[in-house]
């Protein structure tokens, strides 16, 4: 192949005509079958391999593109996800702070002469039936706790259906917490126990007196 530029003086700039002629030539020549070689075959395999690798990598480590999968090694879970079992003592702690701590104090010590203590109290460690009744309907009148008489100037409000209306689960949680906090070590109270007592009490609206609760001791 020969162009005018091959024989020209290297110092002379190309004329317009020469430039156009230069661009007339295709960048590569067709082979004897009229095909142009576009891409070396090896590069084609390299890029195919890269695409295959990337696709597999994304498919494997994408975490299904889920906003809650954050570990590349984990796989998305299909179907309903169940929360773990509720720890009654922990839930009870939260509910105690919200409902009971105003009077019985976060320490469970109560107020001498007015509010009976819950820590190391014979009422708390005693029978759950009596304890559940106190929470459901409240308590009024004088009461003897650990041998000390509280005149009952401040009545305890009801937390059952006539009062704050806490569910069986929540009353069980509070009582489980109260029976196991501050050095207390009594058995937990189950929601079933609360449900049974609630059914037994029925539609009573008045708060209990200590004398009425004597049979459940």
């Amino acid at each position: 192949m020969s162009t005018p530029s091959d024989s020209r003086d290297p110092g002379r700039p190309l004329s317009d005509e020469e430039l156009v002629h230069l661009h007339d030539n295709p960048p590569a020549e067709a082979d004897d079958r009229g095909h142009y070689r576009m891409l070396p075959l090896l590069l084609l395999f390299v890029f195919s391999g890269l695409i295959l690798f990337s696709g597999t990598y994304v498919g494997h480590y994408s975490g299904s593109f889920s906003p809650i999968v954050h570990d590349a090694r984990a796989h998305a879970v299909t179907g309903e996800i169940e929360a773990g079992p509720v720890d009654l003592a922990v839930l009870g702690g939260t509910l105690y702070t919200a409902n009971c701590a105003t009077c019985h104090l976060p320490t469970g010590l109560g107020l001498p002469g007015a509010i009976p203590p819950l820590a190391n109290s014979d009422w708390v460690s005693g029978s759950p039936e009596r304890l559940i009744r106190v929470v459901l309907n409240g308590l009024q009148g004088p009461v003897v706790v650990n041998g000390t008489t509280f005149p009952g100037a401040a009545a305890m409000p009801a937390f059952g259906s006539t009062g704050t209306n806490l569910s069986d689960d929540r009353i069980a949680a509070i009582l489980t917490y109260v029976r196991q906090a501050w050095g207390n070590a009594s058995d937990p109270v189950s929601p079933e126990q609360v449900a049974a007592v609630r059914a037994d009490v029925g539609a009573r609206a008045d708060a209990w007196t200590a004398a009425e609760l004597q049979p459940f001791e």
Binding site: G63, I68, V69, I81
Partner: peptide
């Protein structure tokens, strides 16, 4: 610990 994340990130 949110239960959906706990279940979906178990390895």
């Amino acid at each position: 610990a949110y239960a959906p994340e706990v279940a979906n990130n178990a390895v």
